[in-house]
Amino acid sequence: MAGMVTLHGPRVTLRPWRLPDDLAPLHALNGDPAVMRHFPEVMDRATSDAWARRLDGHFTQHGWGFWVVETPDASLAGVVGLMHIPWQAPFTPAVEIGWRIAAAQQRQGLAEEAARLALAYGFGPLGLDRIVAFTPPANEPSWRLMEKLGLARQGEFTHPRLPADHRLNPHLWYRITREDWMAARLED
């Protein structure tokens, strides 16, 4: 794991993957209908394990990605981070910020704290020019967090990995530039 970045906040640690140890708690997260209500379906164990391996592979390639969120109470309270988007959309190529937090840890500000750490890393050491995020319109908690983080709504798009008539299509997409992020930090 040398060279892989770990980020620390007051209540959360964002750390690289520890496979296979993280597979069972990740499946508990991905298999929870409350957590996955704005995703196409809950994940079975094989699908969840494959997703973990893709996330870990991004870490192996880049040294950063979607981190495991640890808290004093949970070794895997969620997944938050940055990742290259592997499909085509009006805003790609791009790096996305995303989050998925366990139901027991939601509405405690953990996703916001973790996402702020990820944004600071993306615009700081990584030197990214912009970061995007996306979600179905029905996922109000997620797009409200995007706005709270300073991302601005850019419009809608049809998610290429979902059928056009799927209940979760279209998606909203948001963007924040390094300049906007820096300006907001100067105002604080």
Rank of each mutant, 00 (worst) to 15 (best):
G3D: 06
H8M: 04
G9N: 06
P10L: 01
P10Q: 10
R15W: 09
P20V: 15
D21Y: 06
L23M: 07
A24R: 13
A24S: 07
L26Q: 04
H27R: 08
A28D: 04
N30S: 12
A34K: 14
A34T: 12
M36E: 08
P40K: 00
R45P: 04
S48P: 11
S48C: 11
A50P: 11
W51V: 09
W51P: 01
A52D: 07
L55K: 07
L55E: 11
G57D: 01
G57P: 07
H58G: 09
F59P: 05
F59Y: 13
H62D: 14
H62R: 09
G65Y: 05
V69I: 11
E70I: 01
P72Y: 03
D73M: 14
A74K: 09
A77C: 05
A77K: 00
G78K: 07
G78S: 02
V80D: 14
G81C: 06
G81L: 03
G81R: 02
L82P: 04
M83E: 00
I85S: 08
W87G: 05
W87P: 00
Q105E: 13
R107V: 12
R107W: 15
E112W: 11
E113D: 15
E113M: 10
A114T: 11
A114H: 08
Y121I: 07
F123Q: 05
L126E: 06
L128K: 04
D129I: 01
I131K: 02
P137E: 01
P137N: 01
A138E: 14
A138K: 03
N139W: 03
W143A: 10
M146L: 02
M146I: 01
L149S: 11
L149F: 07
G150F: 02
L151A: 09
A152E: 15
F157T: 08
T158A: 15
A164N: 08
R167Q: 13
L168C: 12
P170M: 02
W173Q: 15
W173Y: 09
Y174K: 12
I176G: 03
R178I: 01
R178K: 10
E179K: 03
D180V: 03
W181S: 09
W181R: 11
M182N: 13
M182A: 12
A183Y: 06
